[in-house]
Computed example of a mutant assay.
Amino acid sequence: MDFSVYFFSANDRNDFGARYRFILDVARFADSHGFTAIWTPERHFQEFGGSFPNPAVLSAALAATTENLGIRAGSVVLPHHHPVRVVEEWSLVDQLSGGRTGICVATGWHRGDFVFYPEHYETRREHTFGHIDTLRSLWRGEAARFPGPGGQELEVRTFPRPRQPELPLWLVHTSNPRTWTEAGRRGLNVLSLLTSWEKLEEDIAGYRAARERAGHDPESGIVTIGMHTFIGEEEEAVRALVHEPVKSYLASFMTQKRSDDRVSGTSRDTDTAEQDRLADLMAEDYYQRRSLLGTPDKCAATVGRLRAAGVDEVACLVDFGLPFDTVLAAMPALDALRRRCAGEDRATPATAAPAAGTHTSSGPLGWYYDRG
């Protein structure tokens, strides 16, 4: 099982410079301790994740700061960009990093983000899938044709040339099973969050089968699962420490969802007390069932269950509202878990995580995950 570090911060009212320094500190630790990659997202116009308007810019700094770590976009919202710009920017990052980049593409969902290309909103899924092959061909150095001034088509080849001959590509998944099969058919990797253990196993099986039907090696595709992560020795101390930050983090999703629904005219009134109760339930659900929050033994069992489900990489979401110094101080415990799980690789039985705690629905955040 590979371990990477994943950023998608919620509390962006803090000093932005301090956050970027914190990200670089985490990256240096991960780089020198055998982690696989670091993921940074693309977010716009919201407090939730507002530090991350352009993962290529931040990734250029990460590339210059590290030597071994994969530098990945988690993700690039393809309908917000011209594919030529995506390849140009990430080819530059690939050169700076010595060939360590990877991109996860996403369709986008928040209406307010589509100020860039409003015409792409209704066809965002088709637009994304329609340009995956374009990204790949441009990355290889092949020419592509695009509309130019006066309706004339122009032929384009991008520079600089990247170091890697092929672009490592992930597709972000929310809950739509077609995303898994589409990723398999196209030979893409998958980045997802955990909503249901049973659904995860079903989706991974469908993904592997789709790869095989399309003539791809069914086992070579990488399934990456993002999970809130904080490791500590005392169960109750960890729960007390992470509950409010996780609750606040998840409540940010609800706030953004309501904002989007107001724009679309589908909003439902939710009073403050109801939202607070829901956020409490969500936070406890994440702690118990869908996170690497807790003691080393609890989290190792969860990693074992991920492995048994067919997951290749866990992306540890370490930045969900805890103080930066607290997260940095806990990184050695996360590295110890990584080393422990690497030593047990393929040796942990499928029953490592107890059946109790099985989550069989898309959960309280189903409205968010169902966007995919």
Rank of each mutant, 00 (worst) to 15 (best):
F3E: 05
Y6G: 00
N14F: 08
F16L: 11
Y20I: 07
Y20L: 10
F22W: 07
A27D: 04
F29A: 11
F29D: 05
H33T: 12
A37L: 02
I38Y: 01
P41V: 08
E42Y: 08
R43Y: 11
H44G: 00
E47W: 10
G50P: 06
F52M: 12
P55R: 02
S59E: 02
A63W: 04
N68L: 02
G70V: 03
R72G: 02
G74A: 12
G74Q: 02
V76A: 04
V77Q: 00
V77Y: 00
P79K: 12
H80R: 12
P83I: 07
V84C: 09
V84M: 05
W90M: 08
S91Y: 05
D94Y: 06
S97L: 01
C104T: 10
P118R: 08
T123M: 15
R125G: 04
E126H: 09
H127L: 14
H131I: 07
H131R: 10
D133W: 04
G141V: 10
A143W: 03
A143L: 06
R145V: 12
G151M: 12
G151N: 11
Q152V: 07
Q152Y: 06
T158C: 14
R161D: 06
R161L: 09
P162C: 10
E166A: 12
P168I: 06
P168V: 05
E182N: 13
A183S: 07
G184A: 05
S192G: 03
L193W: 13
S196G: 13
E198I: 12
K199R: 13
E202L: 11
D203S: 08
A205G: 08
R208W: 07
H216G: 05
E219C: 05
V223M: 12
T224S: 15
M227P: 05
H228N: 11
F230N: 00
G232D: 03
E235Y: 15
A237D: 05
A240D: 09
L241P: 00
V242D: 04
V242I: 07
H243I: 04
E244D: 15
E244G: 02
E244F: 07
A251F: 04
A251M: 06
M254S: 14
S259I: 05
S259R: 14
D260R: 05
D261N: 11
T266F: 06
T266C: 01
S267D: 15
D271E: 11
E274Y: 03
E274G: 05
R277S: 12
L278N: 09
L281I: 11
L281D: 10
A283L: 09
R290G: 03
R290P: 02
C299D: 06
A300N: 00
T302C: 08
G304D: 02
R305A: 09
R307E: 02
G310F: 00
V311L: 01
E313I: 05
V314P: 01
A315R: 03
C316G: 07
L317Y: 09
D319P: 12
L322V: 14
L322M: 10
P323S: 10
F324V: 04
F324G: 02
T326S: 04
T326G: 02
T326W: 07
V327L: 06
A329D: 15
M331H: 01
L337M: 13
R338C: 04
R346K: 10
A347D: 07
T348P: 00
G357P: 06
G357L: 03
G357H: 03
T360G: 15
S361I: 03
W367A: 14
